[in-house]
Design a binder for these strands. Structure first.
Length: 456
RNA sequence: GCGGGCAUAGCUCAGUUGGUUAGAGCAUCAGAUUGUGAUUCUGAGGGUCGUGGGUUCGAGUCCCAUUGCUCGCCCCA
C-alpha cells in the first residue's frame, strides 16, 4: 500500500493543535480590533496577473500556479512549446495562482472598492498563504499570516500603533524576551548613496540583512562577490556596526547623512515614530533601531519592521513596513500610502511551544459524559443531556450501548472531567452517580447538586 | 536550483567483522474485573527491513541505482 500523506510543507491541525492555534489567533484578533481594524477575507486564488511581478523574480518562482480547467493545451503557443520554454508555457496554461501573501490581495481589494471604502482604511486579515518553497524547519508551503494594514494615510501614528500592537500581542501571549527591530528605507537608501551603489540597492540590502545571522566577514565576502568595491566596505561597516542606543544611532547617522535628503527624512520619521510611542504613554523596551535590517520585499518605501523572539530557533515571527505605491501597480492614478504588519502564526506557534508558554489545559473538551448500562438508562440519559446543554454545559452521551469500562476509557482519553453513570438504581431513585475523573470520587447526587458542581 | 543525513511493526528506535525463525518500548485489541477510566498483571495481533539490481554458500547489515523524508544553502513568515 502506498503511504498516504499530505503534500510536503503542509500540515493537519488536530484538536490539540487547533486549541493552541485558536488561542494565538483569537488573542491577536482581539488586539487588532481594539486598534480599530476590521476583518477582511479574500479568495485563496488570485489572477496570476495580480500576483506576478510584485515579489521580485524569486517571488514569481515561488508562486503556486493553478492549471486551467478543461483542455488547458488549447491556448499553448506552439513556438513556446517547440522552444521548450516552460516559463512562457506556464503563462499559457495557468491564469490563476494561490496567494503569496495578504498584502497584495488587500491592495487589489482597495483599488477595486475605493469608492465604498472609508479612508483611512484599517483592515486585518488572517488567512493561509502559499509558497512553492522548499520546506525546512519553521518554513512551510502553506502557512497562516495575520496581517493588519492601514491604507490612505501617511501618518506615522500608524507605525507607532503597529509597535504597540506587537507589544500588546506578546504581552497577552506571555512572550517577554523579544525585539522589535525598526529601520527605514530612506536610511538604507542613504547608505547606498554613500557607497555610490544606487543601482544595486536590493543586492546590497539582501547582503547586509544577513549581518546578524552570518557575521561581518561573510557579509563582506558576499558583497565583494556581488561586485561591491572593497574600498567602500570600511565605511559601510562603520555604519552597520555602530553600537549605541536608538538616539545615539540617529545622531551618528545624521552626521553621515548630511548630504542625503532621503537619509535625513528617514531619520526624522524614525525619531517621530519612537516619540509617538512615548506619547501614547508606552515605553520603548524591546524597540531597537537596527541599521542592518533590510527585508527582501521590494515594495517598502518607509519604515520597516521585523520581530524576533530571542532564544528560539524559528527566525522572525513577523514583519512589515510602509509602502507608498502598492496600489499604484494596479492603477497608476491610485496613490494610497499604506503601512502594514504581519505575524506568522505558525512560527509564533512553534516559538510558544519551544518556550513552553501554552497553558496546559488549552485543548477544549466536554465537561461531562453520560455513561449508561441499558436502553432504559440511555433514554433517561438523553433527557439529562438535553437539560445540561440548556444550562450551557458542554456534554455528551456515549453513542453506543457498551460496557461502562469502555465509556470511562472514552471520557479519560478525551479528558472529560466528569462522568454521570446511569443504571436502573439511578433511574428509580433519580439520584445520579457523578464521578470526578481527576480524584476518582463518586457520589449519588440530585440534578441540582450536579449542575452546581459542573458549572464551576 | 545546490549540498549533507536518514529509511527496520501504527509511532520511537535497537539489531554485534554478513550467519538459523528480525527484537524492545509505546500504541492497539482481548482478558484478570458482566456497574467504573488513568495505575497493575496476563495474553494476542501486527514486518515485502523504502524500491530495484549486484557481491556472497548466506544480505536488515556490503556495493550501485532509484524514490521518499529530513537538515542546511539561495530566498523568506
Amino acid at each position: 500500500m502506498d503511504k498516504i500523506s499530505q503534500p510536503k510543507g503542509t500540515r493537519d491541525f488536530g484538536p490539540a493543535q487547533m486549541a493552541k492555534r485558536s488561542l494565538i489567533i483569537d488573542s491577536i484578533k482581539k488586539i487588532f480590533q481594539r486598534y480599530g481594524f476590521q476583518p477582511l477575507e479574500t479568495p485563496a486564488m488570485e489572477n496570476l496577473s495580480t500576483l506576478q511581478g510584485k515579489y521580485g523574480d524569486e517571488g514569481d518562482q515561488l508562486l503556486f500556479k493553478i492549471l486551467n480547467s478543461g483542455d488547458f493545451l488549447k491556448n499553448v503557443n506552439k513556438q513556446h512549446l517547440e522552444a521548450h520554454n516552460w516559463k512562457l508555457i506556464t503563462g499559457d496554461i495557468a491564469e490563476k495562482g494561490l496567494r503569496y501573501d495578504l498584502t497584495v490581495p488587500f491592495a487589489r481589494y482597495v483599488v477595486m472598492n475605493r469608492h465604498e471604502i472609508t479612508f483611512p482604511f484599517k483592515r486585518y486579515q488572517i488567512q493561509p498563504v502559499w509558497r512553492a518553497d522548499r520546506p525546512q524547519r519553521g518554513r512551510y508551503r502553506e502557512f497562516y499570516q495575520c496581517d493588519a494594514d492601514v491604507v490612505g494615510t501617511d501618518s506615522l501614528v500608524c507605525e507607532a500603533e503597529i509597535i504597540l500592537m506587537i507589544k500588546d500581542s506578546f504581552g497577552v501571549l506571555g512572550i517577554t524576551d523579544y525585539s522589535i527591530k525598526i529601520n527605514h528605507r530612506g536610511v538604507l537608501s542613504a547608505v547606498a548613496e554613500l557607497l555610490a551603489a544606487s543601482g544595486k540597492e536590493s543586492s546590497l540590502f539582501v547582503a547586509i540583512d544577513k549581518l546578524d545571522k552570518i557575521g561581518e566577514e561573510k557579509v563582506k565576502e558576499e558583497l565583494i562577490e556581488r561586485g561591491f568595491e572593497s574600498s567602500s566596505l570600511p565605511l559601510l561597516f562603520e555604519i552597520l556596526t555602530f553600537h549605541g542606543n536608538n538616539q545615539s544611532k540617529v545622531e551618528f547617522l545624521t552626521q553621515k547623512f548630511a548630504a542625503s535628503e532621503k537619509g535625513k527624512k528617514g531619520l526624522t520619521e524614525l525619531t517621530q515614530v519612537l516619540e509617538l510611542v512615548k506619547n501614547f504613554g508606552a515605553d520603548l523596551a524591546h524597540v531597537e533601531f537596527d541599521i542592518s535590517l533590510a527585508r527582501g520585499l521590494s515594495y517598502y518605501t518607509g519604515c520597516i519592521f521585523e520581530v524576533k523572539i530571542n532564544n528560539v530557533s524559528v527566525g522572525s515571527v513577523g514583519g512589515g513596513g510602509r509602502y507608498d505605491n502598492l496600489t499604484a501597480v494596479f492603477d497608476s492614478k491610485e496613490k494610497s500610502s499604506g503601512v502594514g504588519f504581519s505575524f506568522g502564526i505558525d512560527r509564533l506557534y512553534d516559538a510558544l511551544e519551544e518556550l513552553n508558554l501554552f497553558p496546559p489545559d488549552a485543548a477544549a473538551s466536554s465537561t461531562l459524559l453520560v455513561a449508561y448500562l441499558d436502553n432504559e438508562s440511555f433514554s433517561y440519559g438523553l433527557k439529562i443531556i438535553r437539560h445540561l446543554r440548556e444550562q450551557g454545559i458542554a456534554c455528551e452521551i456515549y453513542p453506543d450501548l457498551t460496557k461502562v469500562k469502555k465509556q470511562m476509557e472514552y471520557a479519560d482519553r478525551k479528558k472529560i472531567p466528569f462522568v454521570i453513570v446511569i443504571g436502573s438504581d439511578e433511574v428509580k431513585s433519580g439520584l445520579l452517580s457523578l464521578k470526578n475523573m481527576k480524584t476518582g470520587e463518586q457520589h449519588k447526587l440530585t440534578h441540582e447538586q450536579i449542575l452546581d458542581i459542573v458549572k464551576k
